[in-house]
C-alpha cells in the first residue's frame, strides 16, 4: 500500500512499532529478573489510559512544548528510511536529521521549564549535558560515515551497503558501529545513562509535572524515539531492509542487545558519563577515522 496513505500513516506505524518494542523490552527485563512481567501491549494500554485522564497545565508554553515534542518526534520518522521506502530525501539528509532530532527534546524542555519545578529543571539540565557529552562521538561517527560514503544522502549510504551481508557497514566499519551503539544507549535514555529520568533521585526528572494527556504525548514521543533510534542504526550499519519483516527483525535485534545490556547496569552520574563520553568513544572513533579514512582528515 503505497502513496499518500502510506505517508499519512507512517507515524502511526512507527508508533506501533515503538510500542511493541517497549512492551517486549519490559517483558525481557522482567524475565531477566525471574518474574513474569506485564502483558506485551501494556505500554499501549498505558498511553490510552493517560490520554483519558484529567490533566493540568501551567500556561501556553507548557502546551506548546508538548505539541512540539510530538510533532518533532513524528517529523524524524519521515526522514528515516522505512524498509525500502526512502520517504523524504535530499542531499543533506544526515546533517538535517541531526538537527531535527533536537526539536522534540527542545519542546519537552520548554514545557518543563514553565512547570517551574526544580526537579524538572535539574532533569533537563542533566539531559542537555548528557547530550553535549554524547554528541561529540556521535558527530565523529556521522562525519566518518559521510566521508567514507562520499555523500550525506541516505540513498547513497543505503546503496553502498547493498550486495550481500559482507557489505554492511557494521562489518566494514566496526569501530564506528561500536561507538554509535554506545551513544545510542544515552540517546534513548536507558541504563546506565538514564540520569535524565532518575526516578528515585529527582522524581522522574522532566516528567514530574506532566499528567494525563500531556504525559500521554510524552509517552508517544518516547515510543517514536525508540523506533527512530533503532531504525537509524539499521539504516546506517545494517544496510536498510528490503521488506517490512526484515526491517522489524533487524531493528528488534539491535533493541534486544540494547535491552540486555541496559537491564544489568546501574545508573551513572552525569559528570562521569560526560567524562566517559568525551574520552573512550572519542578515542575509538578517532582510531576509526585514521584507519578507515586515512590521513586526509586533517
Amino acid at each position: 500500500m503505497n502513496g499518500v496513505w502510506f505517508l499519512v500513516f507512517l507515524p502511526f506505524i512507527a508508533f506501533l512499532i515503538g510500542i511493541s518494542f517497549m512492551g517486549i523490552g519490559t517483558r525481557i527485563v522482567a524475565r531477566i529478573q525471574r518474574r513474569y512481567g506485564p502483558p506485551l501491549i501494556q505500554p499501549f494500554i498505558d498511553v490510552i489510559k493517560l490520554l483519558s485522564k484529567d490533566s493540568i497545565s501551567y500556561g501556553w508554553v507548557f502546551d506548546m512544548g508538548v505539541w512540539m515534542a510530538l510533532a518533532g518526534a513524528a517529523l524524524v520518522v519521515y526522514f528515516v528510511p522505512f524498509a525500502d521506502n526512502v520517504v523524504l530525501s535530499g542531499k543533506a539528509d544526515v546533517v538535517v536529521l541531526m538537527y531535527i532530532l533536537a526539536i522534540a527534546p527542545l519542546g519537552m524542555a520548554l514545557g518543563t521549564a514553565q512547570a517551574k519545578n526544580p526537579y524538572a529543571s535539574i532533569g533537563i539540565s542533566r539531559a542537555l549535558m548528557l547530550m553535549l557529552g554524547y554528541d561529540l562521538p556521535l558527530v565523529m561517527v556521522i562525519l566518518g560515515i559521510i566521508t567514507y560514503t562520499g555523500s550525506a544522502s541516505f540513498v547513497d549510504i543505503l546503496s553502498a551497503q547493498q550486495g550481500g551481508i559482507a557489505n554492511w557497514y557494521i562489518f566494514r566499519l566496526p569501530l564506528f558501529a561500536i561507538v554509535y551503539f554506545w551513544v545510542m544507549i544515552a540517546e534513548m535514555g536507558k541504563h546506565p545513562f538514564d540520569v535524565l529520568i532518575a526516578p528515585s533521585e529527582i522524581a522522574s526528572g522532566p516528567m514530574v509535572e506532566f499528567s494525563g494527556k500531556y504525559l500521554g504525548y510524552l509517552f508517544i514521543y518516547m515510543a517514536l524515539h525508540y523506533y527512530a533510534a533503532c531504525a537509524l542504526f539499521v539504516n546506517f550499519f545494517m544496510g536498510g531492509a528490503a521488506s517490512f519483516i526484515e526491517f522489524y527483525l533487524k531493528m528488534f535485534s539491535v533493541f534486544f542487545v540494547l535491552i540486555c545490556i541496559s537491564a544489568v547496569m546501574a545508573r551513572t552520574t552525569t559528570q562521569r558519563a560526560v567524562y566517559m563520553y568525551w574520552t573512550k568513544p572519542v578515542v575509538l572513533a578517532f582510531i576509526g577515522w585514521l584507519v578507515y579514512l586515512g590521513w586526509r582528515i586533517f
Partner: peptide, 22 residues
Amino acid sequence: MTARFDMTRYGFAPMATPRQAD
C-alpha cells in the same frame, strides 16, 4: 512489586509523582 509476587503482570506500576499516579 518484586519477583515473587510481581504485581506488574496485572498492570500495576509504581510512579514517582502524584501527577502521574492513579
